[in-house]
Design a binder for these strands. Structure first.
Lengths: 178, 178
DNA sequence: GAGTATCTTGAACAAACATTCAAGAAAGGA
DNA sequence: TCCTTTCTTGAATGTTTGTTCAAGATACTC
């Protein structure tokens, strides 16, 4: 995962993967069939890691809206860190490969759609808790929230100043709650 | 430009570039030194094209806020088209190369910062024209607008349904004007 | 502890890659 | 028309790439 996050799929060579995994080419091919298979496995592991992380954020005994804010703050922290290991493998791979590999594009889209649906559930909960107006559409809020996160992550790659990213996230949050 | 937009830098081979440019390897190397030089030239051409396009959008005899909306609508149309040739070379290359090539990351960041500043000018104009509250910070508005565009473009790669993208853009616009 | 099964190793492979360059074509000037 | 200069060509070069596989190590069974 970190190798692909750092160099992207195409630029990550088998030697890089050998170094990153500690496995020799033969073992990698035995376990994952080929380089693409390793990417698929990395995407699956990323999905597991991130859904577990998501559950952790939202298992806190707080109002949903508070957990959503904490979740956003964490994204901001990842953006500010400038650490490629904390970037999003899904959007990174989507940007690189969507045009060329339809299966991978669909896997990534599916994962991101799951995240969107999970977020929508949390927004629905926030509506029940009266943190957010009942008039708002949870699905739309989730899409807008996700769009904001995508935007933040891209923006941070050009402008890693903490205050700027924090200010943008704050506006995003208040636009969603308003 | 279109070759790099379609396959990304690493996956675009010299043969692809030969086909795309109609030039033979020798000529390409004579004119651009190497593959990276061709990317630099493509980035420069993209900058020229996009600044010209920007001027065209904002030379319309309309209120600045109207021109901003038209500009956004155009981004939405590009997103919906699903045409890789209409994607943003800057964000695409930024995602792929920022981690590995500092010079290219700085060129791209510089170009995107110019765009941000140009947008800030238009927001300042909109304030003068009373389309937007005088209390708002033009620079912040420009950053938020740009962040929204980044988000839209990424979102559209997973969810190319026109209505969804249009709805997200509409919310972005109204959040900025509010 | 012998024998079977599984896993690991890293050298070897062909294909594809970016890059070079000497030969040839075209253009321009006198 | 001839010479000089500039531009174009595409085969050849040496890497690097992803991939394979037979040999060796390890683990497991009886």
């Amino acid at each position: 995962m970190t190798a692909f996050l750092h160099k992207g799929y195409a630029k990550t060579s088998m030697q890089d993967l050998k170094k990153a995994t500690g496995l020799h080419p033969g073992s990698i091919y035995c376990a994952f069939e080929n380089k693409r298979g390793l990417l698929l496995a990395a995407l699956e592991q990323y999905r597991l890691d991130r859904t577990a992380e998501f559950e952790r954020f939202f298992s806190a005994a707080q109002l949903s809206i508070v957990n959503l804010k904490t979740y956003l703050d964490n994204v901001v922290a990842e953006c500010i860190s400038g650490d490629s290991a904390k970037a999003c493998l899904l959007t990174k791979a989507l940007n690189e490969m969507a045009e060329q590999d339809e299966e991978i594009q669909q896997i990534i889209s599916g994962n991101l759609f799951s995240l969107q649906q999970s977020l929508a559930e949390k927004f629905a909960q926030a509506k029940i808790e009266k943190s957010i107006s009942a008039k708002k559409d949870s699905d739309h809020l989730a899409r807008y929230f996700l769009m904001g996160i995508y935007g933040l992550r891209t923006f941070a790659q050009t402008h890693p100043e903490a205050e700027v990213i924090e200010q943008l996230a704050e506006q995003l949050y208040s636009d969603i709650c308003r």
